[in-house]
Simulated scan of single mutants.
Amino acid sequence: MTTSDAGSTPRQASFITDPYPALARIRANGPASILHSAEGMPMWVVARYRDVRNVLADPRFGQDVRRAQGLADNRVEGVTLGTDMVHMLNSDPPDHTRLRRLVHSTFTARRVAAMRPLVERITDELLDGFAGRDVVDLVRDFAFPLPMLIICELLGFPPEDRFAYRAWSTAVLTHNDDPGAAERAMRDMSGYLSALLVRRRADPRDDILTDLLRARHDGQLTEDEIIGMVFLLLIGGHETTVNLLGTATLALLRNPDQHRWLLDNLSALPVAIDEFLRYESPVSMATVRFTTAEVDLDGVEIPAGELVLVSLGGANRDPDRFPDADRLILDRADAGHLAFGHGIHRCLGAFLGKLEGEVALNRLLTRFPHLALAADEDDLPWRNTIMLRGLESLPVAPLG
Rank of each mutant, 00 (worst) to 15 (best):
G62R: 09
R332N: 03
L250S: 09
L127N: 01
T366G: 02
R327K: 12
D224W: 01
V65W: 04
E120M: 06
P147G: 11
T83N: 04
F163R: 07
V79M: 00
M41V: 04
L56C: 05
M285I: 15
V79F: 03
T174V: 14
V308Q: 00
R121Y: 09
Y165R: 01
H238C: 08
L71M: 14
D379W: 13
S284L: 11
R66S: 06
F15S: 05
D257W: 04
F61Y: 11
A22S: 15
R216Q: 12
V139A: 06
L338N: 03
L394A: 11
G237T: 09
P159R: 01
M115Q: 07
I329W: 01
A195K: 09
A72Y: 10
T3Y: 15
G353A: 15
V283L: 13
Y279G: 10
G390K: 00
P147W: 10
H345R: 09
G62W: 02
E377A: 13
L364V: 00
L155D: 02
F368P: 00
F276S: 14
T108Q: 05
E39A: 13
A268F: 14
V65S: 08
H175W: 15
A28Y: 11
L307S: 00
A167Q: 14
E239Y: 06
H238W: 13
D257Q: 08
N316Y: 12
D378A: 14
V139Y: 03
D207P: 12
D211P: 12
Y20F: 14
A215K: 07
D84V: 08
G400Q: 11
L23S: 09
V112G: 06
M41F: 04
A185Y: 01
M1V: 05
D274N: 10
G357W: 04
T385C: 13
L371N: 02
S91N: 04
T240W: 14
D224R: 10
R121D: 12
H259T: 03
A181K: 08
G228V: 04
A286W: 02
G156K: 02
G305W: 01
G343P: 01
A397F: 04
D177L: 12
L277K: 10
T108V: 06
L352R: 02
V86K: 09
L99N: 09
E160C: 00
L355P: 12
N74E: 15
T174F: 14
R346K: 15
W261P: 14
D298G: 09
I34M: 06
F163S: 09
R53F: 13
V295C: 14
G343L: 03
F276N: 06
H87M: 08
S267T: 12
P319F: 12
T2C: 08
A339K: 07
R260Y: 12
L23T: 10
R321M: 11
Q63M: 13
E280M: 09
W261C: 12
P147F: 08
P93H: 08
G191F: 00
S37F: 01
D320P: 09
A268N: 13
S37K: 01
V230W: 00
R27A: 11
F163W: 09
L212Q: 00
I227G: 02
